[in-house]
């Protein structure tokens, strides 16, 4: 983890985000996330329920994976830098899956109206251990200038 301040001059279009590989998904993490988020959908907790619902087995909250993706951005560009983040949940994340978050800079917009901050546009995605994309998304981060 890195908490040093990143400046707009430190990233360029094409700069790649350091990948964030999370620990394998365990049931206990889904239970903790349910409690922390208030999402108690039994489909993430109860295998019999998930099976009856046609999903085969429990699977991770999409929002947990989105939390990983948001962390990958803030680990890189700093807590508080995320101005906007949006994702599409492309595939189910199952127990035992290892989610790795990746991204790159696609645009850097200079300051407007004397505001000294740059806006940095990111393409983001997360993949499982098979390399399948489980999330695709975009973010806008605010970065200060050194000058």
């Amino acid at each position: 983890m890195k908490y040093a301040k990143v400046y707009a001059e430190d990233v360029q279009v094409g700069s790649e985000m350091p990948p964030l590989a999370k620990s394998p998904i365990q049931q206990i993490q889904l239970t903790r996330y349910a409690g922390a988020s208030g999402d108690f959908n039994p489909i993430h907790q109860d295998a019999a329920f998930a099976k009856a619902a046609g999903m085969g087995d429990v699977f991770a909250h999409g929002m947990l994976s989105m939390g990983f993706v948001a962390q990958s951005v803030t680990d890189w560009l700093g807590v508080g830098s995320v101005r906007k983040i949006g994702v599409r949940f492309a595939a189910i994340v199952r127990l035992g899956d290892v989610v790795t978050c990746r991204g790159k800079v696609v645009a850097k917009r200079p300051p407007k109206n004397g505001d000294g901050t740059y806006l940095v546009d990111l393409d983001l995605w997360a993949e499982n251990q098979k390399g399948e994309k489980v999330i695709t998304g975009k973010a806008v981060a605010v970065l200060p200038s050194r000058t």
Partner: peptide
């Protein structure tokens, strides 16, 4: 105004829901 309210409004059971997309602007 939570998922339970949405389920009642739509008339569906929770097992049918999937999260499709999510965005936050700060």
């Amino acid at each position: 105004a939570d998922t339970g309210a949405l389920l009642r409004d739509l008339g569906v059971e929770i097992g049918r829901l999937l999260h499709g997309e999510q965005e936050f602007e700060h």
